[in-house]
Design a protein around this nucleic acid. Structure first.
Length: 671
DNA sequence: TGATCTTGGCC
DNA sequence: CTTGTGG
DNA sequence: CCACAAGGGCCAAGATCA
């Protein structure tokens, strides 16, 4: 297909789409335009701006919205529903004719998709999103350049163009977008602002503005996936003086080339990196998993250097024959693998090539697993309200309590060569922010420690008194290009976990073992590098735990973390848990056994659900026994009950809130 | 240049 | 960080 | 129950303006 034909085809499709103005597919999708509460300019938090009706002026005097030509980039309201999804996913119908990567259109083909979507919606209900995304990722008849589409599309779908630990910022505010809209659509600020106030979403503004566009500056060139992605990268790459204009030009072009309102909407939302399609990381991983279970690229030109893709597939026919639970099992197993990979190596540029090589199988975890200088997604703790809830969740298992310090979580990588990387909780690279920590690493590394990944909390600490400073003090530190001599706020790293050591992942080891390795192989430096203060306890120690919690608060900590120590409960004696039937040791043990048998293949909780017999045995206990198993392993990106946090929540009570972990419970059930 | 505003990161 | 919402 | 979205307070950086 030539460019010209393609363009004509797209234009025709576009017209058709415009005609059938935003065919609402499901009721929920209506929420897009449902925004009441426009909230002028919706810039971020501050910015007093009580200003309501006052229209924006260019070059605002100080009373006006200071940045008069800005369309805010924050929003209200959720966009759920597949109308938006279909628009974003666009026309990557990889199952039909083969369009070269460079020409893969950004626009979607409503004629093709709308009926399918209706069908999906009717038949699959909640699975429609996954089904649709999976369909769009299906790789049939592809070449390696086509494969790139998947990659690119995934990035675009997740509001990102790079993983968080690689800093590639668009550096675009709303102003560039409004400027472009003014220029391209011939509207003035006042109208734009009015539209924005109505919808509260820059993308919706673009939609309306584009519909009002009365002229064209030049012949639009159909947008392609690759083109849009490349533009984003170019925008992000432009830096320094004059960069604003470069960015502006790129934005202008994108909006000129956008055909019609719907495409403009999503181009702009893409530019804001705020697609609002309700399908982000997890959804995409699930969709990828399904797509790769069902299909693989077939290389048409074997003479090239194209690799061959031969991983096994599931056939749709076979899957159709399965019972509902069996099908869920098949999907679920794949999803767990893909999620596990992404949790350990959160980069689609790594994940997708690996999937292309081996498909969705345990091998994937080897190809795309934990590695140095690539942050894994941290394990999280479930929030607990009070002590009794905590002890209940712990189900009588042994646990460790740790101070929960008021600082910033940090993941420290060090390779055998001594190179250090430090990542934040959200995987931002902050090595440059803590040159003092980097310098510390050689000194804390004990004998026999080569490479490692450890985790801890960075806290501002007075070096002479050892006194802990609050979080706010820590934020006063400079963040970029910190010279080690110019540091005014000293910090201490309170380490609490070790996930990797000497080339070997430790994620599957029990916490007790990881902690022991950490504490035996590394060397403390007072007020610079120490262990989190901790206390091992059992469910009988509620008073001691409570006291520990109070100590933590007195020590300027936010509260405590509680962590399961061992995988298998080490019950001294199977004393009958006669009364209460609360903790119920026997079922615990059985469950745990089931899990550990299947764990190596990532069976996990799905597997344990399959064994329903054991629950039958003790009907009275079924209610409490359905809890998820408690793991002492490090489970990246999961929020499980094996880690519990108790203490003062920051966002709820920024200042001086009372601890929410009230000393409510001395009333413990026996023992 | 310094004041002012926006952004994006942390909790 | 927290909450709210929807499936 | 989960995933997504959005909310708030705070800060350094950087862009923009007077």
């Amino acid at each position: 297909m030539t460019d010209e034909e393609l363009a004509r085809k797209l234009q025709a499709e576009w017209d058709q789409e415009e005609a059938s103005v935003s065919t609402k597919i499901s009721g929920t999708s209506a929420s897009i335009s449902n925004d009441k509460e426009p909230d002028a300019f919706a810039t971020r938090s501050r910015n007093p701006q009580p200003d309501k009706g006052a229209p924006m002026r260019e070059r605002a005097p100080s009373s006006e919205p200071p940045k008069s030509d800005v369309i805010g980039t924050s929003h209200k309201g959720n966009a759920r529903g597949i109308l938006s999804l279909q628009s974003v996913v666009t026309a990557v119908d990889t199952t039909s004719e083969s369009i070269p990567f460079d020409e893969s259109p950004l626009t979607f083909d409503p004629a093709k998709y709308v009926p399918q979507l209706r069908e999906h919606w009717a038949n699959d209900g909640g699975d429609a999103s996954y089904a649709l995304l999976a369909r769009c990722f299906v790789l049939v008849g592809g070449t390696s350049s086509r494969i790139k589409i998947v990659d690119t599309l995934v990035w675009l779908s997740t509001n990102a163009i790079s993983p968080p630990y690689i800093s590639l910022e668009l550096g675009l505010g709303g102003s560039a977008i409004s400027k472009a809209l003014r220029q391209v659509c011939g509207l003035d600020n006042r109208s734009l602002k009015a539209i924005y106030d109505k919808f509260g979403d820059a993308g919706d503004v673009a939609f309306e503005a584009k519909k009002k566009q009365s002229f064209t500056l030049r012949a639009p060139k159909p947008l392609t996936i690759k083109g849009v992605y490349n533009s984003l990268v170019k925008i992000a790459s432009a830096q320094g003086p004059g960069s604003a204009e470069v960015k502006q030009r790129l934005v202008d072009r994108l909006l000129q080339d956008a055909r019609g309102g719907e495409e403009s909407r999503y181009v702009v939302r893409t530019l804001c990196q705020h697609l609002r399609i309700g399908a982000v990381k997890t959804t995409l991983l699930i969709a990828l998993s399904r797509a790769f279970l069902l299909s693989r690229p077939s290389i048409t030109s074997p003479n090239q250097n194209e690799p061959t893709y031969e991983y096994p597939l599931r056939s749709v026919e076979d899957l159709r024959r399965l019972k509902k639970e069996e099908l869920a099992e098949v999907w679920g197993r794949g999803e767990e693998i893909v999620k596990a990979c992404f949790a350990r190596r959160p980069n689609y540029d790594d994940l997708i090539p690996a999937m292309l090589e081996v498909g969705v199988c345990p091998e994937l975890l080897v190809r795309c697993g934990l590695g140095l200088h690539v942050p894994l997604r941290p394990m999280l703790g479930s929030i607990t309200r009070d002590l009794s809830e905590m002890l209940t969740k712990l189900q009588g298992r042994d646990f460790a309590c740790e101070f929960k310090y008021d600082g910033q979580r940090a993941q420290v990588h060090c390779d055998a060569g001594g190179k250090v990387s430090i990542f934040s909780r959200h995987l931002e690279m902050m090595t440059d922010k803590y040159p003092d920590l980097v310098a510390l690493v050689p000194r804390i590394r004990g004998e026999g420690v080569g490479s490692f990944i450890m985790e801890g909390e960075v806290v501002a600490v007075d070096q002479t008194t050892g006194e802990l400073k609050n979080f706010q003090t820590l934020t006063n530190r400079a963040r970029k290009d910190v010279a080690i001599g110019s540091i005014t706020i000293d910090v201490c790293l309170f380490a609490f976990d070790l996930m990797y050591l000497n080339g070997q992942p430790l994620l599957d080891r029990p916490f007790r073992e990881r902690r022991s390795l950490l504490r035996s192989l590394f060397v403390e430096i007072p007020n610079r590098f120490t262990w989190v203060r901790s206390l091992d306890a059992t469910s009988q120690d509620s008073e001691i735990v409570l006291d520990f919690f109070k100590q933590a608060l007195n020590f300027k900590c936010e509260g405590i973390m509680v962590k399961i120590l061992d995988n298998l409960p080490n019950l001294p004696t199977p004393i009958a848990s006669t009364h209460e039937g609360e903790g119920n040791d026997s079922t615990d043990k059985q469950q745990e056994g089931v899990i550990s048998r299947t764990q190596n293949s990532k069976g996990k909780s799905k597997a344990s659900l399959g064994d329903s017999k054991e629950n039958e045995k003790q009907p009275t206990l079924a209610k409490t026994a359905r809890r998820k198993p408690l793991l002492s392993t490090y489970e990246p990106d999961k929020r499980l009950d094996s880690w519990l946090k108790a203490g003062t929540g920051k966002a709820a009570r920024p200042n001086g809130g009372r601890p929410s972990c009230l000393p409510c419970a001395t009333r413990r059930r026996g023992r």
